[in-house]
Design a protein around this nucleic acid. Sequence first.
DNA 1: AAAACGGGGGC
DNA 2: GCCCCAGTTTT
Length: 214
Amino acid sequence: MNEIEKTIEILRKSVPPHPYKSREPFRVLVATIISQRTKDEVTYTVAEKLFEKYPTPEKLMNADEKDIAALIYPAGFYQQKAKKIKEVARIIHEKYHNQVPDSLDELLTLPGVGRKTANIVLSRCYGKDAIAVDTHVHRISNRLGWINTKTPEETEKALREILPKRYWKDINELLVMFGRTICRPISPKCDICPVKKYCKYYREKKKEGWVGSA
DNA sequence: AAAACGGGGGC
DNA sequence: GCCCCAGTTTT
């Protein structure tokens, strides 16, 4: 077992499980669009309300865009998200007969769906060999010293090369939870971090005489 | 009060 | 590549 594998095994045991459990492709797709540039705590509460009122693609495609916007309001960027969600619902219903596509190229065709969102659906719903890179995955992979990249696309490519496939599917949920509890963007809690002995960022900060965290 | 946070698309 | 979108949380 190399250092990356050891790190992941430790994180699996110490990081709390990701709260969003649905694997239903349409819901995961829409929830992930809502989650873009917003905290996932608020994402799931508004997604629940949305699906309660509009449980299917047909219902959602016929919903008033303003009403969708109102329901997802706390997530931010609500107008363009509402527009995209409504359009996605229409396409999934009319073009794909309610079956969310399971290929990257087709998913990327949908409005509001980029690499992160598409890869979330592929890995979480379809068990594909996909790595969903969001800012948590990007930041943490670089902090730990696994890779040295500056864009999410580079990160995805680099992780494909150094990360054993059996971890691809879970890496996003794992690092998201690690990122919100310990390895936060600002003032990470390195003093209580379970993998600091494998972390490049920690070693460097220590060398600089940095102490503790907030 | 101000700054940090988090994806995609249009140009 | 740069800039816009709109909230919540942290400092």
